[in-house]
Design a protein around this nucleic acid. Structure first.
Lengths: 365, 365
DNA sequence: AACTGGCAGTCGGTAGAATCAAGTGCCAGA
DNA sequence: TCTGGCACTTGATTCTACCGACTGCCAGTT
């Protein structure tokens, strides 16, 4: 029973404006090309169960698909390969609901059953996990601490001439700065100073706290000044996101030109670029950016899959996968989504609980 | 009947037992091959100023050098390339005192003039610097905190059900663990507990401190127990070295087989392996390990250059460079040494001062 | 004895021709 | 509208011949 032409009704909602057969042809080309990296010919496509026509008909459709920009031939008399537009149509309309294989699913489960320890550690290891789930490079960007408030400010003497400023934020992040002393300070002086700072600063927002400091009560304006400076610096640093990279070596599997590998790797080393790119894609509401869609020239031969990690409040992190445009999108999407949602969950019940269901005591908003 | 041509006088102390001319030939072959990656022929060597003989004579010496294992021919009628043994002789006896080019020298100076902030940050950025000074991948391993004592132990409330344990070590390192509470705890209870822990633990060695804890004075044995467990965990974690990697993409320049690139990169991702390797090389008193010398099969086509970073006490860190055996050893050695000694210096006067010259006030130790 | 110039010989690399195979576009016919 | 058939295009592959870069050897020179 052939799933005939358009007259037969919308046999797939996914066909949009290509017609069901051309969509099926495109799908076949994409999946095959992703698997083999070899241009796909009409004969192979005709053999596919979903396409029940002869190779000649497939050829006719292929010229149409090529005319419309979904496919290209590397050269006359080779098979077709998808264009960026072709991949785009595939992910938008054809990609099967991504399901991870069961072994991989188990791996994820095992991983998240066993995670323990601090968030940084979890993110770091999650990036490795993600790279193992797919043959692509994985990136995990931690949520920024935008709305965090100060939970503790402490001065610890290190040497007679150095003290360490240790700051704890409400989301569990800890920052430190070494401060140099001009004059010696006794332990008790330090302790009272520490306590004073704590009392004054705890609970306030990191970003505007520093302004309050300079009006010092006690004895050591120089130290107060450097604490203030350090706090400002920390506030700035905490804006910046931490980046964890997993399995960049996987990229060497995807590209065969060593020059491409090198250039992509060197881009990955510039963390700022990567973060900006991922955030940008996410902000545009996409979960996939293919080829030039992300607008970053040097990565035109790459595709990016992203998924948000939401940590209770509205500041979100990102998990991303970077591979060639010839990427297994269903697999990548599935992996990214599983990891991102698991991460979100862990992060929420690690410390976000107060904002959510529980709402114990503190009303606020 | 080997031709002991030493009659010519010991024109170079560096010739050891090869004779001055053969040494010069080997040197020429190494430097040329490192630069061009192309087998070096007798004609080229004969043209070198240090070798004042005809190409025929060079050829004769080359057969000897090949017989003794310093050179090989990729195939008959190609030029020669050095063996690992050849490189070894080169670095042991022939390598010119490594001098960085002045632009690079300035870069180092600028870098270390401007460093600020915490040690982790400095090491991280130093690894990038090192990778920029050479075309090889750089690795920086931080000194382990073996002898550090506790300087501060603090509990900070995070949510009604979570507290954060923050530990400061005498070398400025800060560690944290999130602890889950079974029963709620007031701020003041926390504060007194915190103070109690501090008083009991500060000054003691991290590694044997945990045993002391369980005998709790106050009210919350469960919490005390989890603090104790966390401290043990931290003690374990602090043994492990942190690794910073710079410019792994540089490796893609060195090897032309993409498969080699991939395998080397994937090894670099296993930080433990890398650290072990570097530490091992350093422990054997070497500063260079070529090819199979380091005994790690998968990196047989690579060479490693290491230099110690000594941080006051006897626990040392490592800086290392990883490249192909066809490596510019003088350059790599110079770069590694400059960076390692600069790092040592910074780390010493950042906090090691008390052990060294100054010894201010506090006698004892 | 140590070195040199000359020369025959050995291979790898490259250019060109011939062949192969994959795959297309088109067309006449169902 | 689809299909089978067919001529055609074109990148890969193989083969051959050839060139060039070396070497190893040897007879001659210093």
């Amino acid at each position: 029973m052939p799933a005939k032409t358009r007259t037969n009704g919308p046999s797939r909602a996914s066909t949009d404006d290509l017609g069901p057969r051309r969509a099926a042809i495109l799908e076949t080309v994409v999946t095959e090309y992703v698997g083999t990296a070899t241009p796909v010919g009409s004969a192979y496509v005709a053999r596919a169960p979903r396409v029940n026509v002869s190779s000649a008909t497939v050829r006719a459709d292929m010229v149409a698909l090529e005319r419309d920009g979904y496919l290209v031939q590397p050269h006359t008399s080779a098979g077709r390969i998808p264009t960026d537009k072709g991949y785009r149509f595939f992910v938008d309309h054809l990609a099967p609901a991504g399901t991870l294989g069961t072994p991989q699913r188990q791996r994820v489960k095992k991983f998240f059953d066993r995670v323990h320890g601090e968030m940084e550690d979890m993110l770091e290891r999650a990036s490795t996990l993600l790279a193992q789930l797919t043959p692509y490079a994985a990136v995990v960007v931690s949520p920024s601490h935008g709305l965090a408030t100060l939970r503790s400010v402490q001065l610890v003497s290190l040497t007679p001439r150095h003290v360490l400023l240790v700051v704890v934020l409400s989301d569990g992040a800890v920052e430190k700065r070494t401060l140099e002393l001009t004059a010696q300070l006794s332990e008790s002086e330090l302790a009272s100073l520490s306590a004073g700072l704590c009392q004054r600063l705890v609970g306030s927002d990191l970003s505007n706290a520093p302004d309050l400091v300079p009006l010092a009560a006690a004895d050591n304006p120089a130290l107060i000044e450097s604490v203030s400076r350090a706090l400002r610096e920390i506030a700035r640093a905490e804006q910046g996101d931490e980046v964890y990279m997993g399995g960049p070596s996987r990229l060497a599997e995807s590209f065969d030109a060593v020059e491409t590998v090198r250039s992509v790797l060197s881009i990955l080393e510039q963390q700022l670029v990567v973060v900006t790119l991922l955030r940008d894609v996410l902000d545009r509401g996409l979960s996939v950016a293919i080829g030039t869609e992300h607008g970053y020239e040097p990565l035109a031969s790459c595709a990016v899959v992203v998924a948000p990690v939401s940590a209770g409040d509205n500041e979100t992190g990102v998990v991303g996968l970077l591979g060639p445009t010839r990427m297994n999108y269903p697999q990548a999407l599935a992996a990214a989504h599983v990891v991102s949602s698991e991460l979100s969950e862990r992060m929420n019940d690690a410390l976000g609980r107060r904002n959510e269901k529980q709402g114990s005591g503190h009303g606020g908003h």
